[in-house]
Nucleic acid binder design. Structure first.
Lengths: 145, 145
DNA sequence: TTCCATGCAAAAACTTTGCACATCG
DNA sequence: CGATGTGCAAAGTTTTTGCATGGAA
């Protein structure tokens, strides 16, 4: 099973010349515990145990952790980016009427990735943006007259 | 060939009980002339000839035109949504390092769309989001140490 | 002790809302 | 004339920046 704490933040920080701080650990922990979340959600999670941590720090830390490769973010269309641990790199669909999100097999995009690589030299990042459309329920509903 | 002005704004407005106004025509024209643009860009375009049009009106009008099916918007990941005429409904790739955007064949997603429809009842909206990744140049560059 | 990191406050970017006046039909 | 649409101003969100204090090494 994947180790929840992959034995790495302090070392990774050290290796790149950054300092180890409680806040940085808390942000990473929060991301891993939540699975994924917006900066706001991550901040709230941290506030449950450490109300003193400023959301500015959350933003700055997420940026740092992303640069270090420990977290990544993705977009569901509208609104705030979702941060998640690097190993939680999944393809999603999102309904743009009701917002419903579902996990779908990343393999579906393999042919697309291959085409982009071969024809364009473009390296597809499967999990970065969710595929948008309408879920069953919303597709069935009459157009919003 | 696609008529640039599909003979429609006044009629479409009328049909739905809305009024025809110069601003509404200007917003639609600007979107068509630009191909696509953020609300800000659309507003600037209009200001070149009609400085008096308020950006609030642009936002409200884009929402209306989208509801009427005359324009649509899509997301490139970060930042503001891009509005475009409904007929300019194309699949794009976007590099998340440098922001480069390229048009790619929508057909590439047909198998994906079919799978989503069959397995999930999900109606994929090909043009609504871009596929993210790294362009050739950025993929070649060393990681930002 | 020496910088790096954080908290706080203010600003910036983007979008929405409320209201009075203007305009379409 | 009556209802809808617009401009203006203000407020709401979300994210970024500047700076002095605090903490890691």
């Amino acid at each position: 099973m994947p180790t929840p704490t992959p034995a790495g933040l302090p070392e990774t920080l050290r290796a790149s010349g950054y300092r180890r701080t409680p806040q940085r650990q808390m942000v990473l922990d929060a991301v891993e515990e939540l699975g994924q979340g917006t900066p706001e959600e991550i901040s709230e999670r941290i506030h449950q145990t450490s109300p003193g941590v400023n959301i500015t720090t959350v933003y700055r830390t997420l940026e740092l952790l992303e640069q270090l490769g420990l977290v990544r973010h993705r977009h569901f269309g509208h609104g705030a980016p979702m941060y998640h641990a690097s190993d939680y790199d999944t393809l999603h669909s999102v309904c743009h009427r009701c917002g419903q999100v579902a996990v779908i097999p990343g393999k579906l995009l393999e042919p697309v990735a291959r085409w982009l690589a071969d024809e364009r030299g473009f390296v597809l990042d499967t999990g970065h943006i969710a595929l948008a459309g309408l879920c069953t329920k919303c597709a069935a509903e009459p157009p919003p007259d």
